[in-house]
Write a protein that binds this DNA or RNA. Structure first.
Lengths: 179, 179
DNA sequence: CAACCCATGTAAAAAGTTACATGATTAA
DNA sequence: TTAATCATGTAACTTTTTACATGGGTTG
């Protein structure tokens, strides 16, 4: 499981409330790891039990708690970082639909591919904006590593955009042309 | 959930035993949907309860059962194909490790990226062999749709190969140069 | 006759999703 | 004062993974 280590990394970057972490998993971190607030709160509780993080109440707030990564948490993160995992499995229902289209035909998938194309283009635009804002000039090593993460996202979106365009050219059935 | 529909598609292509389906999910189908044999057998039982598939014993074999997609199964597949889903969430622990490297450094991720590069190159080679064998000449519509699925795999591997090479150039820390 | 592949399952644990629930703070 | 956002959780359910388990057939 990688969620606790994603959270440890986020807390090392900045001590945060669970709510704040959930928002970050909806935006930047969310590109390569998704987590709902329910998962996050449960995991924060486990990590505090394990002694990896601490949490402090915020005086002005009734409920808000700020979580921090402790040395034991950083040690765990270093231990985990040295372990390997296989390439994560792809699970893409659109490709199942395409395979079904090849098998039985007549599924009318063009609109789904077109919608997918629009979403990838929208994501790419967002990534390009981050790139221009944060990674335009000279970068130190930390900046270069952060930029490498963003470039994984940019390359993914560019690939899928190209693929969707190719698929849109492939899908139309000539025999339907003047139906 | 898309597993039952992936299975229906596979059974439309060819009536099969659960074991055979499991092997196909380890190879070709496995590129875009993973499933263990335990999942597959459970799902086959559910689908038979739902009346989507039938199963026949094989006379020569003690246990082997061949499953077939019934008309109700194909109808369900058509219904499902028209529904949409959001872009599947990415979950890549390697990118978490990279983010941790940006935060605390000294994690020595080069070997993991190098290993990943080798795996992507190996997959690409396998896909290129399928491409040369099955999609070299003129294709009918079915062949073009099948080829589109394969090209999604090829593009993914090519992107990651390029990314890994870029990451390997980024990761080395100059201050460690002559340690 | 041993090792390997074919073939099908059960059980338990972990992870992820969805629905439900509450209450404080802030801005219009 | 009402709606949106901040903030934290519980409960039930579904899905996925891992471990365990069995036994027939084939090949060297």
């Amino acid at each position: 499981m990688s969620l606790p280590h994603a959270l440890l990394t986020s807390l090392l970057e900045r001590p945060s409330s669970g709510y704040d972490l959930a928002r970050r998993f909806d935006s930047s971190i969310g590109y390569y790891w998704r987590a709902s607030h329910q998962q996050i709160y449960r995991e924060l509780a486990r990590m505090e039990d394990a002694g990896w993080i601490s949490s402090d109440e915020v005086a002005e707030h009734a409920r808000k708690r700020i979580h921090r990564c402790l040395p034991a948490g950083e040690a765990e993160l270093r231990r985990w970082a040295a372990t390997g995992d296989p390439i994560p499995a792809q699970r893409d229902p659109l490709l199942i639909r395409l395979r079904a289209e090849a098998a039985i035909g007549g599924l009318g998938l063009e609109s789904q591919v077109a919608q997918r194309l629009a979403e990838h283009e929208s994501r790419l635009t967002a990534y390009r904006a981050i790139e221009a804002r944060d990674f335009a000039g000279d970068l130190d090593r930390r900046g270069r590593v952060q930029y490498a993460i963003l470039r994984a996202g940019i390359m993914t979106e560019e690939s899928w955009i190209e693929w969707c365009q190719m698929a849109l050219a492939t899908l139309p059935d000539p025999t339907d042309a003047d139906a």
